[in-house]
Design a protein around this nucleic acid. Sequence first.
DNA 1: TAGTGGTCTAGACCACGGC
DNA 2: CCGTGGTCTAGACCACTAT
Lengths: 262, 262
Amino acid sequence: MNGEAHRVADGVRRAIEAGEYEPGAALPSGESLAEQYGVHRGTVYKAIKQLAAEGYLTITRRHPPVVRERPTHVTVVRDRNVYRDEIGYYFDQNAKDWAAVKKPTRGATVPPPHVSELLGLAPDEMAFTRERLMGPPGAQYAHQLATSYLPMRLVGEIAELGAERPGPGGIYDVLERRFNAPLRWRETISARRPDRAEQTALGISPEVPVLVVTRSSTINHNGRDIVAEVNETRMAAEQFAVSYAVQRDASAAWPRQEEGET
Amino acid sequence: MNGEAHRVADGVRRAIEAGEYEPGAALPSGESLAEQYGVHRGTVYKAIKQLAAEGYLTITRRHPPVVRERPTHVTVVRDRNVYRDEIGYYFDQNAKDWAAVKKPTRGATVPPPHVSELLGLAPDEMAFTRERLMGPPGAQYAHQLATSYLPMRLVGEIAELGAERPGPGGIYDVLERRFNAPLRWRETISARRPDRAEQTALGISPEVPVLVVTRSSTINHNGRDIVAEVNETRMAAEQFAVSYAVQRDASAAWPRQEEGET
DNA sequence: TAGTGGTCTAGACCACGGC
DNA sequence: CCGTGGTCTAGACCACTAT
């Protein structure tokens, strides 16, 4: 794992951390770095890719690599509660004031397999989607990328769900009003490497993992529980973490009763 | 992004998925694959690295790549509760019957920065560690890699914490007995690329992200809350997900009172 | 000693953006 | 048109393993 590429990567990394290249500034071209370090351009290329994987650089075709803003270490973005303000439900107190980086888009696609399964759809069945890119005011890239999946059948029955603006409180209020029952949510967290769209939207390299929070919304309808919506939020794993308090099951009550202490 | 390397990767991937190579079997050497596809060996090398990144292969130095067991998609490993059985607390109902793949080790290291911060240690201060590799019975690789960090000061005061076997119920029971107070836990989830030790222990490539669950144990001592232990569990993100139910804050109670419905 | 993965150089070609 | 990143080939070298 040692070698010339490593030497170059270490040198450039140190230069970035020493502030020799400002965040947002472009690096010298591969050719000139090769000259500077006395190695072949291909070797520089590998070093640059490595640094992009570590989150130091964003690389674009036909433009020199750009130094990313300092990875602001881990920010907690969730806890185990859902809150409500005058607008509607929200799940993330930090992101409350975020704005859409781009106008939300609506469409229809075949959801990823685990989403289809949650919604009870056939693997190749289409779903209605709504996509939002959210970020703090003034951010260059989106920090979170959220896609909401709804069964076509449901959108057909309840026209407001497919509207450009479903009204105050969003689709969750529409659902609770329509079914006259409370929504229940479950969040599942995993991680994977980003696809092309996620790389572009979040400004990250293929090697930087994204944290995926899949939230399913369940509601009771005629005595049966149905999953009405699945929301998948993706964020760069190096910048975000998800946190929650652990709750004691009845079996773990304290103080404990039936244990003989010495 | 298209090219010869892609063609080779697609071909080999299809062969694996068609079952032409059994899980555990070795692939042909790079040289012979290069011949077979009519490309240069370096191109094959890139394709193989890509497939390893996708989780299909495990690559080892100087040995042909080995086909990994089919990534069994996402397995939920947590919910928001902590449970207790006759042995002690446990956080994961699925992993209840897992066994240690290797004998647990004890030692002392400088913890990662976020762990030091949680424990209230100086960035370069050492901590007592206990490391376990857990997996289902008979597994080739460990599925989860857990490290427990304790402040040296605490281990000095309470000798049982540093013992090879802290007794039934583990260190959590020791702490609750000693401080006569209940532990409280918080879990924070993020993801990153694995370091060398994690790659070896979990049998994954550098490009496959690991999910990191950091659990801090807080206990009240003389009226102050102290973080007595931090446990960091790592697992391959392609195989595991963490799931929990979302709870309604008081602001999000249902049915809602003060809203005029039309 | 032969064969393996892993790395590097040298040189070539392509697609595309900016001049 | 030139310069950029991105890719591929050809050929070399090394460290190590299996024989």
